[in-house]
C-alpha cells in the first residue's frame, strides 16, 4: 500500500484528501504545517509520495522540498495560485507535478498514479476482496488461483482497484481504458463491467447518473 504524506494547512482540505485516498486504498499521513511535516518526516521510515501545499505557515512548501528530496520522496504541489511563475518555480525546484485548487479527487489520483509509477512507489500488488492483482506480472489471482482475464478486462480491473470506493463515470472509464480517442458506445463499458463482475465476483455497484463503483 502506497503511503502518501499529505502536507496541507487547511484542515478541511487535508481531511478531504486523506479520507478520499484512504477509501481508495492508500495509506495517508497528514501534516498541518511545515514544522509538523518535518517532525513526521523523522517519525516515518518511508513515504511513497508527498502532496505539499505551497502556502504553509512556519516553513512553506518550497522550503520543505529539499528535505523531502533528500529522502527521495516525490512531491506533487497543491496550490491556489494559478500563475505560470509559481508553476515554473515549483517544477524547477524538483517537484514531480503541480495541481491547482480547486481540483477533483479523481484527477489527483490519476496524477499521483503517474508519479508513483514513474518513481517506483506504486504498489505492485493491488487487492480488492479476495482478488489480487499483480501489476508487474499482469496477472490476477482469486484466492491464490490465477484468473484469466482479457487485456481490456485487466485494464478495467486495474482502474477500478486503483479508484476503489470512488465512482467512475462511463466517460472516464472509456477514456482511461479505451483511450481518449475512442468513440465507442458507452454500452461497451456496461458489457465489460458485467463480464468483470461475473469473472471476479467483486461488487461493482452501478450508480444511476454517476457511473460504476468498486466497493470494498
Amino acid at each position: 500500500m502506497s503511503r502518501i504524506f499529505v502536507i496541507e494547512d487547511e484542515e478541511a482540505i487535508n481531511k478531504l484528501i486523506c479520507t478520499s485516498l484512504t477509501v481508495a486504498g492508500y495509506e495517508t499521513v497528514p501534516a498541518y504545517d511545515g514544522n509538523e511535516a518535518l517532525a513526521k518526516l523523522r517519525d516515518f521510515e518511508r513515504f511513497d509520495l508527498a502532496l505539499v501545499d505551497i502556502m504553509l505557515p512556519e516553513v512553506d512548501g518550497f522550503a520543505l522540498l529539499p528535505h523531502l528530496r533528500e529522502r527521495g520522496i516525490p512531491v506533487i504541489y497543491l496550490t491556489a495560485k494559478n500563475d505560470i511563475e509559481s508553476k515554473v518555480q515549483g517544477l524547477k525546484s524538483g517537484a514531480e507535478d503541480y495541481i491547482v485548487k480547486p481540483f477533483e479527487i479523481l484527477e489527483l489520483i490519476v496524477r499521483m498514479d503517474k508519479v508513483l509509477e514513474r518513481t517506483g512507489g506504486a504498489s505492485k500488488l493491488l487487492r480488492a476482496g479476495d482478488i489480487e492483482l499483480r501489476t508487474d506480472e499482469r496477472a490476477v489471482y482469486r484466492n491464490g488461483e490465477a484468473l484469466p482475464l482479457k487485456p481490456l478486462e485487466f485494464e478495467l480491473l486495474t482502474l477500478f482497484i486503483k479508484n476503489k470506493n470512488i465512482a467512475l463515470s462511463r466517460e472516464r472509464i472509456m477514456a482511461a481504458v479505451w483511450g481518449g480517442d475512442y468513440f465507442g458506445e458507452s454500452r461497451t463499458v456496461d458489457v465489460h463491467v458485467a463480464q468483470l463482475r461475473k469473472k471476479t465476483g467483486l461488487t461493482i455497484a452501478s450508480l444511476p447518473k454517476i457511473g460504476y463503483r468498486l466497493e470494498d
Partner: peptide, 15 residues
C-alpha cells in the same frame, strides 16, 4: 471552493 467541491464530490461518488 476546493473543500466544498471536494466534499460534495466525495458525498456523490465515494463510498
Amino acid at each position: 471552493m476546493t473543500a466544498i467541491i471536494g466534499y460534495s464530490e466525495a458525498l456523490m461518488k465515494t463510498r
